[in-house]
Design a binder for these strands. Structure first.
Lengths: 140, 140
DNA sequence: CTCTGTGCAAAGCGTTTGCAAACGA
DNA sequence: TCGTTTGCAAACGCTTTGCACAGAG
């Protein structure tokens, strides 16, 4: 298991930088997402209950919403699976293993896609969401 | 409003070609998706109730599932919006207007993305789902 | 001290299921 | 005719809400 090397204050500052009050629940969510990268709501709840036994699902829902509103967390909708949540970072795309479901980030050059889409359509493209599917190294 | 120029038998044949019994409800779903391109469940229900007043939501859910199982219909998950459904066609990507929500198809060259992802990751990519967001011609 | 966040329980809402009747092949 | 589909209503599960108490700033 990956361990955190960040202090509680690290997450509190991150939260405050996004106009979010720093509570233990929110810090725990931030830490879990930073460590695990991508988690769905159920996984997040199971994970956090270990450290915060009284944590309620409602709190997770409320906090994910406020974190998304403040652009601190993003929801990643995956084809044929539950949404996962991640900390907002620089623009990136997602790889999903079709066998084990693992999600990884990948940085792709998107100019080509955007240019082609602008040329072929009447839209002015501002954003590209890409989900790549395939087999991860272990599942080949 | 776009009107259909296909006979009822056209949709019945399409359905049978996908191992689906041709019922009026299914033909109506196929027709609506062919005419409108992309519809969410609520829009589909409202539309179809006009022609089939006794149609139930449960029937739409059951049929969409069997149509997806038979690879006749595909679900398109959109960031921050309800899923829409479309008839399965050749591989293509989606454009979504961030103002009016309109969804259009676009054919993009994906080799570049796939090659780059294969080169930069340990995954063997088999599929790429791209959702482009921006402003459509009317909403610029 | 004040306002926001938390946890619990209840409510809400979209989706699924069970079943009898209707229907397609 | 036989197996599938339909429509209804009930059940389900995930998400949201209301509220009293606790906690952050």
């Amino acid at each position: 298991m990956v361990q955190s090397h960040k202090s509680a204050e690290h997450y509190a500052s991150l939260l405050r930088a996004h106009q979010l009050k720093a509570t233990p629940q929110r810090s725990a969510i931030a830490e879990a997402l930073e460590i695990h990268g991508h988690l769905n709501i159920e996984a997040l709840y199971e994970l956090l209950k270990q450290k915060l036994p009284t944590l309620s699902l409602a709190t997770i829902y409320k906090n994910l919403h406020s974190m998304i509103d403040k652009n601190f967390v993003a929801e990643v909708k995956l084809p044929g699976a539950k949404s996962v949540y991640e900390l907002v970072k620089e623009q990136h795309s997602h790889l999903v293993c079709e066998k084990c479901g693992k999600v990884e980030d990948i940085s792709l050059t998107l100019e080509y896609c955007i240019d082609e889409a602008n040329a072929k359509s009447n839209f002015t493209i501002t954003q590209v969401d890409i989900v790549l599917r395939g087999r991860c190294h272990q599942c080949q």
